[in-house]
Design a binder for these strands. Structure first.
Lengths: 239, 239
DNA sequence: ATTATCTATAGATCTATAGATAATGC
DNA sequence: ATTATCTATAGATCTATAGATAATGC
């Protein structure tokens, strides 16, 4: 069934049975290992072994281990960041609660559906420091700012009066990232669960029960507009 | 001024200028390195260097790197877990909101005041798996259960009806652990900020504004009862 | 000619053990 | 005698580079 189309390059010592590009095979193998064992604890040899190539062959696709992680991180935030403008365009400007709910749902889904729970890598100390991940950190900061902005606008006056965008953004985004913990604990993440998390974020803003209900149903409708395609799409796939 | 009292054992190649036990010196140095560089990325040599002893001398105090991390993790949750019974004794049984607020404040303070932001190590993948950290994971699970229990009892009927203890516990505890992110981002954690985080946790339970205000002032009073002593106390210090 | 792999390996680690040694304590 | 260190090192990694090789594509 997996009759491989012949391809250029010296054959692998273990023939590939996968249709995805070698680069993505590496990314997938690395993601699983980084998530289960940790970045520093994963050797390039282990990654290569999973892919079915020799350790040195990795360096044809990536300049180093760092670069593999950098790309994985990018792929886990970029989709959500890219959708922020569309959210703002779709949601009527007064209804900030809906915007926040929708943002949360999209973020939750991206984190939940990513192969191998890449979200837990955010906390890895390695990531916080090295220059290589600056682009990822910038994207994440943008997301924090968006959460903060949406949250402050949706919040009741008494809540909004007391806190700045940055701190509130961190609080909201962090509370959404609980998906990662839940996934890691082996609990299944249902759609209901995703909605509970999003609703909890709105309650943090002191949004009323009724407004939350409205936001939930509107956001769920709008969610269909966000085809989940941009995520983990192999480079060069223009289908 | 730091005239060292003579002590048994061969002298260090760099004489210690610290009064704390060698074991705690190792723990402190390791904590800083684990937090800034990551566990796997930190070598025993680096730890020893900071302490001012040779790499091999670490093994007189700890059986291995793992054991150092295990103890650091323990020290970061044990204080809070140990206080749960006292919280339940001090807070009148009907006032669950206050109990949750107090739990959150204590947890936040423990995470905020620990030297070197050890909380970020919770997410490190290494920790999730290895058997050595089982004791830590158990303690943390107990804390999750407590958050869930306090939260469910404090929650409005409509919120409580919809979610189970475990998931709610993860959500509440995770939202409190934002301290870790805030600390890591270099933002200072003020007492006001701690209260904002605790209040947000109560809002997640749909607790009314008035009840939150009462819980906040009662919990702040009660907080004085919890001398922060058990944390990072050097072993054998019975002062 | 180009592409994607392979083999071989240098050089730099890193952890943990064995056994010596220099203090204090009795 | 006990304690807390030291020196030396075995053995096991691990990353990245150099250069060869086996396919396809033209």
């Amino acid at each position: 069934m997996t009759t491989r189309r012949p391809s250029p390059g010296r054959p692998r010592h273990v023939p590939s049975s996968s249709a995805v590009s070698p680069r993505d095979q590496v990314l997938n193998a690395a993601a699983e290992l980084f998530v289960t064992r940790g970045f520093a604890a994963t050797s390039t040899r282990e990654i290569a072994e999973r892919v079915g190539i020799r350790q040195a062959s990795l360096y044809y696709h990536f300049a180093g281990k760092d670069e593999i992680l950098a790309e994985l991180l990018q792929r886990s935030v970029r989709p959500t960041v890219d959708k922020v403008a569309k959210i703002e365009a779709l949601v009527p400007p007064q209804i900030h609660a809906t915007a926040l709910y929708l943002l949360a749902l999209i973020d939750i889904r991206t984190l939940a559906e990513a192969p191998h729970n890449v979200g837990i890598l955010y906390g890895q100390a390695d990531v916080t420091n090295s220059e290589i991940y600056a682009e990822f950190r910038d994207a994440r900061q943008e997301l924090v700012a968006t959460y903060g902005r949406f949250g402050l606008q949706a919040a009741s006056p008494s809540v909004a009066a007391d806190i700045d965008t940055r701190e509130f953004g961190e609080m909201l985004m962090h509370s959404v990232e609980v998906v990662t913990t839940i996934r890691n604990a082996g609990m299944t993440l249902t759609a209901k669960s995703a909605n509970r998390i999003a609703a909890a974020a709105l309650r943090m803003c002191d949004v009323s029960k009724d407004t939350i209900a409205t936001a939930a149903s509107t956001a769920t409708e709008l969610l269909a507009e966000f085809h989940h395609e941009s995520h983990q799409r192999p480079a060069g796939d223009h289908t």
